[in-house]
Every structure is written in structure tokens, then in C-alpha cells.
């Protein structure tokens, strides 16, 4: 049996195909763009083409992400919170604190030893500290978003960015550049600001995280600078990241599709 999970976020649209043993057969991550129906069709085609599986062979589809109800062919829709928890359980077993920084919001989840969500917190509706925020900052720094994660290497100063509002932070970054502050120092300041924001989100679900393994999912987990800054700000050695953090939600959705099918029996 084959199961499909689709995660339609504000920035990216991800899909994962798995078999009944939870093996990933194929996955795809594409930009959502302005038309999410189109993105859904395309990401689905990508995973089917890559695995050589026919659509009719899919036993069940679970959609997730903010556009989850736009997937017409779904067998069910589950929030990205539950899906990320499910996905990380498979990717990094034993995770107890999960941070997911998505395109337009960031989330912190506390998981029980079985990987079930027992508490979660989401940022306010503003984009501060999210993927969209990083995109805006990369634009202000005139670097590619993928470079941003490595940009802070070798930065020595303790620059603190006071604005976390995307609009104000962008103008602050611009004026720092104008004032001659180096790119890497600004990048470090940005990472620290995001880390502080994330840390306070985590504290809302767990005042004391000692002994609890922390993992991060979502596209921003690829940004090594941010991940490191988060670990430092939480005073822990390591924040674990999956090899393919972008597909955590879609993988979780696919696993839920499998589990629900098995439950129905």
C-alpha cells in the first residue's frame, strides 16, 4: 500500500510518498507560489513521477499545512502541528521538544515519550522570526536565502538587533549596512534575534527543558546559523535536525494516512 502526505505551507508545498513500512519512496519540495491548486498538482506529479507509482495506487492521502483544505482528493486533513510531531518521531525518535519555523509562523511543541503533542505554542500573527522574515532579511543583505545560514561564520561582535518586526528590522539592517557594519555581523545579530524569539516560544511550552532532546523541523532548520544560535540561546549542546527538514510535515501526514488506514483495518 502507498500513502501520500502533502504539506501546503505559505512558502513551500511539500509531498512525501511512503509504503506501508514507512519507507520514503519519493519526496518533493516546491515553492507554493500564488496558485496553491497548481502547486498541489505539481508536487503530486513530482512524487509520482520520481517513484513511478500511479495515482490510483495511493491508498490514502492526508493533507496538512495552512492550505490543507485545498487538497480536493484528500482522505483527511490534519494540522501541521500533529504532522510535524508525527514526522519527527520517525526521523529523530525520542524528540521531546520540537521547533518548527515555517514560512509565516513558528511553532514550539512539547512531545510525550511516545511522540504525542502535549502542548504547543505558535507565534503571533506577525512574521517576526519566520521563514518570511529571513527572506526579507536576505533581501536586505543582498544574499541568497541559502547563503544566509553560513554568513555569520567568523563574526565576532555581539551586535543585537532590536527590531523584530519584519518591516522595522529590514530598515534597521539597511541602516546598519549603510553605517558600515559587516554582513556577517548583521547575519549573526539576525540569528541571535530569531533564536531569542524561538527560545521564548519554547519556554511557553516547557519552562525547563533540561534532559529533553530538542529537534527542529521546517525549511529554516537548513539554516545552520539559526540552528546553532537557537542551541546557544537555549543553553544546550545541540538542536537535532533531520537530513530533510522541509518534508517533516508531509512525511508526518503520510504516516498518519498509513496509521488511519491500518486502524480502519
Amino acid at each position: 500500500m502507498i500513502f501520500l502526505g502533502i504539506d501546503i505551507g505559505s512558502l513551500s508545498c511539500d509531498a512525501v510518498l511512503i509504503d506501508e513500512k514507512k519507507n520514503i519512496l519519493s519526496s518533493s519540495v516546491i515553492p507554493t507560489g500564488v496558485n496553491n491548486m497548481e502547486a498541489i498538482a505539481r508536487v503530486k506529479k513530482n512524487v509520482l513521477d520520481a517513484s513511478g507509482i500511479m495515482e490510483k495506487d495511493i491508498s490514502s492521502i492526508i493533507s496538512t499545512g495552512y492550505g490543507r483544505t485545498r487538497v480536493k482528493e484528500r482522505n483527511g486533513a490534519v494540522t501541521e502541528i500533529t504532522c510535524h510531531a508525527k514526522g519527527i518521531k520517525h526521523m529523530i525518535p525520542g524528540t521531546r521538544i520540537l521547533i518548527d519555523i515555517g514560512g509565516q509562523d513558528s511553532k514550539a511543541m512539547r512531545l510525550d515519550p511516545d511522540g504525542n503533542v502535549v502542548d504547543f505554542a505558535m507565534n503571533d500573527k506577525c512574521a517576526a522570526g519566520t521563514g518570511r522574515f529571513l527572506e526579507a532579511m536576505a533581501r536586505a543583505l543582498e544574499v541568497d536565502i541559502n547563503e544566509l545560514g553560513q554568513l555569520d561564520k567568523g563574526a565576532t561582535s555581539d551586535l543585537v538587533l532590536s527590531s523584530m518586526c519584519t518591516v522595522f528590522a529590514e530598515s534597521e539592517v539597511v541602516s546598519l549596512i549603510a553605517g558600515g557594519t559587516g554582513q556577517k555581523e548583521i547575519a549573526k545579530g539576525l540569528n541571535r534575534a530569531i533564536a531569542a524569539r524561538t527560545n521564548s516560544l519554547v519556554k511557553r511550552v516547557a519552562q525547563d527543558i533540561s534532559g529533553l532532546p530538542v529537534a527542529m523541523s521546517g525549511g529554516v532548520a537548513r539554516n545552520k546559523g539559526v540552528v546553532k544560535a537557537i542551541a546557544r540561546s537555549m543553553n544546550i549542546d545541540k538542536v537535532h535536525t533531520p537530513e530533510t527538514p522541509d518534508i517533516t510535515g508531509a512525511l508526518g501526514a503520510a504516516i498518519i494516512a498509513l496509521e488511519k488506514t491500518l486502524q480502519k483495518g
Binding site: 495552512y66 504525542n116 503533542v117 504547543f120
Partner: peptide, 12 residues
């Protein structure tokens, strides 16, 4: 999303 996730969390 928050409310649905909360409901999902309680169902577990």
C-alpha cells in the same frame, strides 16, 4: 490551525 491542533492533541 491552533484549535484543530488542540482538538487533535486531546484526541490522542
Amino acid at each position: 490551525t491552533r484549535i484543530e491542533a488542540f482538538a487533535e492533541m486531546l484526541e490522542v
